[in-house]
């Protein structure tokens, strides 16, 4: 009986794993098979020219750079806010204090809010301040989306920092600031994970940037200009009736996937370096 139970569970687990893997491979297959033929050097090195949306020459360099600027800005802003928050609720306040748990709960709720709401909220704020859709607006909206993810994933590793370590540091005469420095190093793998999750969530989201960052065929040279982003580039091209343009949407998706891969690997690499470096 027990044996059977075990077998059923094992079969279920294998089935689930295989299904997920199969779906993933299928998505990759579609993106590559449809996107690769349309992928050429022009796609990544040129901005759209007049006939681009009718299938003529040009590329999506504007969206590639827009997305990179956007994610760099958002990750930076979110980190500047999230790391202190996570440290505060764990090491300045006590880990299980009422204040800390309330904040955790709040971030859990924010975590669950759909991205379109952040987009709409960002848009409202921008109207209130009389701002146009711009790179900066997009960065702020994506930061709002990403901060809960970052706080919670840093918090998860911060919670597990042993009290013994903190006391060992304090008995050596370390101040609060010096203690935090060691802690940040200790949790740096968690910080890396937080950045990875944020990049993944932020760079691929279309709904937040739709109203806030806008779209533009040129490369933004100031944060006040509207900026194109890859998810919207995919969206607009997919909705085109021209087949060639539709295929280019897959090429754009392929580019986005490759960018995420590159960012993931480099974040991991630098994360590992950072945790090894000296104080």
């Amino acid at each position: 009986m027990k044996n059977l139970e075990e077998k059923v569970f094992k079969a279920l687990m294998i089935f689930a794993s295989v299904t997920i893997l199969a779906v993933l491979l299928y998505i990759l297959y579609v993106i590559i098979s449809k996107g690769l033929p349309s992928l050429n050097w022009d796609m990544v090195s040129k901005i759209p020219s007049g006939g681009f949306y009718l299938g003529k020459e040009g590329g999506i360099l504007n969206a590639i750079l827009g997305s990179l600027f956007l994610i760099a800005g958002s990750v930076l802003i979110s980190m500047v806010i999230s790391l202190p928050v996570a440290l505060y609720i764990n090491f300045v306040k006590r880990k299980e204090s009422k204040f800390s748990n309330t904040l955790r709960f709040a971030f859990d709720i924010l975590f669950g809010i759909p991205s379109i709401v952040y987009g709409a909220f960002g848009f409202m704020v921008m109207i209130y301040f009389g701002l146009q859709a711009s790179l900066l607006g997009g960065i702020i909206a994506v930061s709002l989306l990403v901060i809960p993810i970052m706080v919670r994933s840093i918090d998860e590793v911060a919670v597990s920092v042993p009290q013994d370590l903190i006391e060992a540091l304090k008995s050596l005469g370390a101040t609060q600031y010096e203690t935090l420095k060691v802690i940040v190093r200790q949790i740096s793998p968690g910080i890396t994970t937080a950045i990875l999750l944020s990049i993944g969530r932020g760079i691929g989201d279309a709904a937040t940037v739709l109203f806030t960052a806008g779209y533009s065929d040129s490369i933004p040279v100031s944060p006040m200009q509207p900026a194109a982003t890859l998810p919207l580039a995919i969206f607009f091209q997919l909705s085109s009736p021209v087949e060639e343009v539709q295929n280019r949407a897959y090429a754009a998706a392929l580019i986005l996937t490759i960018i995420i891969l590159i960012l993931s690997f480099s974040t991991r690499y630098f994360g590992r370096k950072m945790s090894k470096s000296k104080l």
Partner: peptide, 15 residues
């Protein structure tokens, strides 16, 4: 704390 070298019951090395 600098004057008191405390050795904890459980050894805790720094990371």
């Amino acid at each position: 704390r600098k004057k008191m070298g405390l050795l904890a019951q459980r050894p805790t090395v720094l990371p």
